[in-house]
Amino acid sequence: MSGENHSDRPRAGIPAPGESGVPLSDDAFPGFDASQVPPRPQLPVQDTGEHSAIREQWRTKRGEIETHVSQARDHFDQANERIKQRTGRDLILAIVIGVAFGAALVASLLFIKWLFVPIALAAGLLATYELSRALRAGGRRVDVVPQLIAATGVLLAAASGQLWTSWVTLVVAVSFIAVWRMIAQMVVKDGRTYGDVLSDVVVGAFVQIYVPFLTSVAIMLLFQENGEWWVLSFVSIAVAADTCAYAAGLAFGRHPMAPRISPKKTWEGFAGAVAGSLIVGVLLSVFLLHLVWWAGLILGAAVLISATLGDLGESMLKRDLGIKDMSSWLPGHGGLLDRLDSILPSTIPALALFFLLSPWMVS
């Protein structure tokens, strides 16, 4: 310990040469070249102030975006509430359900037209059930199970593609409904008058004609040559008329069209339906059905008239029964029949115009 040379050690508190900024000196260490010592690496200095400013800007931007989204949502909810108060429909649910049904229908017609048959069968049976229940609630003696049995026969007969088969099946179905109702009335013996029984028979026959038979006409049209395009066309025109009438009536509606039947329908809405149906009719006739352009005007006008009459007819029926919708199974729409009221009557002019206008196809 005593033999160690303490003169080479740095004294306490005094840094050695080359440390803490004390430069190395050639005089302190003879023969040592300080220029050969590599410089100590410098760590990057983080500008914490600049980073804090960037983070603050991001927070501000995010807050602004959240505020704009919240305001947009509030405005949309308020607009939807106003529309709901004016029309009695939830616009969001109506659009979602309408798009879903439309997509299924279009997919069946574009890819495998046989898929349209189970869709039409399900829609026809469900609408028959809705109408039968609504009429029963209104005091009519309508037998639901026989109605569904007869409707199944009418719809399946149309899938054969033979027009005469559908007509014969319809006669059998109406006869079956009439006989069932009269036998059921004789069994009950509740003192119902002959006039009431006859009215029940007529109403039962009306159910078969209005829903299953008109639905079967669409199936008949489907199995004609290029029939799937005709089904897609007349349904699209009816939907366009209904949508344009709704939009135009909502935006410009001032003058009621039939206040005693449907107070919310206006002449401005009907004008929108005319424009929409004619434009869509011409476009589909030229680009999808390959007809001359004026055939599209005829098809659009025919479907417009039948769709409008069907809509007003169902509104009159619901007013007579004292109900707003046929059912509440489709949120935003009411019942299925409430959406088919303009499509079902349009099957007749669509099938008739198929035979009349097909010779005018452009090759």
Rank of each mutant, 00 (worst) to 15 (best):
M1N: 13
S2W: 10
N5W: 06
S7T: 11
S7A: 11
D8P: 07
P10I: 03
S20K: 14
S20I: 09
P23I: 04
L24K: 03
A28W: 07
F29L: 11
P30S: 05
F32P: 05
S35F: 09
S35E: 11
P38E: 07
G49D: 15
E50C: 08
A53Y: 08
A53F: 04
A53R: 14
K61P: 02
K61A: 10
E66Y: 12
H68G: 07
S70I: 01
Q71K: 11
Q71D: 15
F76Q: 11
D77I: 08
Q78H: 14
A79G: 09
R82I: 08
I83P: 03
Q85A: 14
T87A: 10
G88S: 00
G88L: 01
D90S: 15
D90E: 13
L91I: 14
L93D: 14
F101K: 04
A104E: 05
A104P: 09
W114E: 10
W114V: 09
L115W: 08
F116K: 03
I119E: 06
I119L: 15
A127L: 01
Y129N: 10
Y129F: 14
Y129D: 06
R133E: 15
R133V: 12
A134I: 05
G138A: 10
D143S: 15
V144G: 10
P146Y: 02
Q147A: 15
V154I: 03
L155G: 01
Q162Y: 10
V168S: 09
T169G: 06
V171S: 09
I177T: 08
A178E: 02
A178P: 00
W180N: 13
R181C: 06
I183K: 04
I183P: 03
Q185R: 04
V188S: 12
K189F: 10
D196G: 13
L198W: 06
S199E: 12
V201K: 02
V201R: 05
V202I: 09
V203F: 12
Q208V: 07
Y210F: 09
P212E: 00
L214W: 03
T215D: 02
V217L: 08
V217A: 04
I219F: 08
M220T: 12
M220K: 07
L222D: 04
Q224M: 10
N226K: 15
N226I: 09
G227W: 02
V231E: 00
S233I: 02
S233V: 02
V235N: 09
A241F: 05
T243P: 03
A245M: 05
Y246V: 00
F252G: 00
P259T: 06
R260H: 15
E268Q: 05
G269W: 11
A273S: 07
A275C: 14
I279S: 04
V280C: 01
G281R: 13
L284R: 06
S285I: 02
V286N: 06
V286F: 07
L288H: 14
H290Q: 13
V292T: 15
V292H: 13
V292A: 15
V292C: 06
W294R: 06
A295E: 00
I298T: 04
G300N: 05
A302Y: 08
D311Y: 02
S315D: 05
K324N: 05
W329V: 12
P331E: 00
G335S: 03
L337K: 03
D338W: 10
S342I: 04
L344E: 07
T347H: 08
L351P: 08
L353K: 06
L353M: 04
F355S: 07
P359K: 00
M361N: 14
V362D: 08
